[in-house]
């Protein structure tokens, strides 16, 4: 079964200084998927990724990475962009990329050639011979990202890849991630920016307070919340709320309410019968952001803050 998964982990546990920061997390990343690891700050995402990659050893649970129970045995087939970016400032950009490839088994000479090609592809060809210390932060971050893919890994693990990037570089990165997926790579990325996850991820897991809260597709996460209706009356009149289903909230752009089990027809009929007009009506699926807040919940956010404090 685990061969269908690039990563398969169950019950991962990690304690730091007597505190349990990861508490029984399960992860199953299908091969070829873009998989999101979501969670608020301090949720345990980075620690989970580090355990999956074998950078640190879990205190409990089991994991396989590309079919290996010792993740290090597959290290040449993995690319990794850590949350804390780091490059040698004195190195030239292409040498830095080639060095990261060499650590993963790519010949240095071939790495340098490939680095130039990758940089040209990302629109950074002019900076191939520039020393890292002379690059802008965003460019240096991109160089590091290219270093994590230069050896064409089967599995690419990106920890908060979008943080610190401007919108142009964020779009570049999205393009690169999709290109890697099209090449056949499996991609795992952690983020707390829902828009990226929503656009890119095939499946995701949500971690909060070191615990596993959800695992499934983006649609399944959004499906946890009922559809919402957005009703715009032709004129604002007092007492309108009485005609709307429970939970209706008035906002500047109209009324919002969860779609009842039987649909919105009954509510519409009540409005029309009551003499209220309809200037607009739309049914909206809740976004991943809403689903995330619902899944994580205020208590988990509190617990997260406690752990990170």
């Amino acid at each position: 079964m685990t061969n269908a998964f690039a990563i398969h982990a169950t019950g991962l546990v990690k304690n730091f200084g007597g505190k349990r920061v990861v508490d029984g997390v399960d992860v199953a990343v299908p091969r070829g998927a873009i998989y999101g690891v979501l969670g608020p700050n301090g949720a345990g995402k980075t620690t989970t990724l580090r355990m999956l990659l074998g950078i640190i050893e879990p205190d409990g649970g089991h994991r396989t990475l590309l079919g290996h129970t010792h993740p290090r045995d597959a290290s040449d087939r993995v690319g990794y962009l850590p949350e804390e970016r780091g490059l040698y400032p004195g190195m030239r950009a292409r040498d830095a990329i080639a060095f990261m490839g060499a650590l993963r088994g790519l010949d240095l000479k071939a790495g340098r050639k490939r680095a130039v090609t990758l940089m040209e592809g990302a629109g950074l060809g002019h900076a191939a011979d520039t020393r890292i210390r002379k690059l802008s932060k965003g460019m240096a971050q991109f160089v590091q990202l290219l270093g994590s893919v230069v050896h064409q890994p089967e599995l690419l693990v990106l920890d908060e890849p979008f943080s610190g990037l401007d919108p142009v570089n964020q779009e570049r990165l999205e393009t690169l991630i999709l290109a890697e997926r099209d090449r056949g790579a499996t991609i795992v990325m952690s983020t707390h920016v829902m828009a990226h996850a929503e656009r890119l991820c095939d499946r995701l897991t949500i971690i909060a307070g070191g615990r596993h809260r959800f695992e499934g597709t983006v649609a399944e996460a959004r499906g946890l919340l009922p559809m919402r209706a957005h009703y715009v009356p032709d004129r604002d009149e007092p007492g309108l709320a009485a005609y709307l289903p429970d939970g209706a909230v008035h906002q500047r752009d109209g009324w919002h309410f969860p779609v009842p089990d039987g649909g919105v027809e009954a509510a519409l009929r009540r409005l029309i019968d009551g003499g209220h007009g309809i200037a607009g009506l739309s049914i909206e699926r809740p976004g991943l952001h809403d689903a995330f807040v619902r899944i994580v919940g205020a208590s988990a956010l509190d617990a997260t803050q406690e752990i990170s404090a």
């Binding site: 580090r50 950078i55 290090r72 290290s75 850590p82 970016r85 780091g86 650590l103 993963r104």
Partner: peptide, 17 residues
């Protein structure tokens, strides 16, 4: 000290024992 300042150590640690 250089590794710590550059934060390269995690890249190394991820790839190499």
């Amino acid at each position: 000290a250089e590794e710590r300042n550059n934060k390269v150590i995690e890249i190394l640690a991820a790839a190499v024992p």
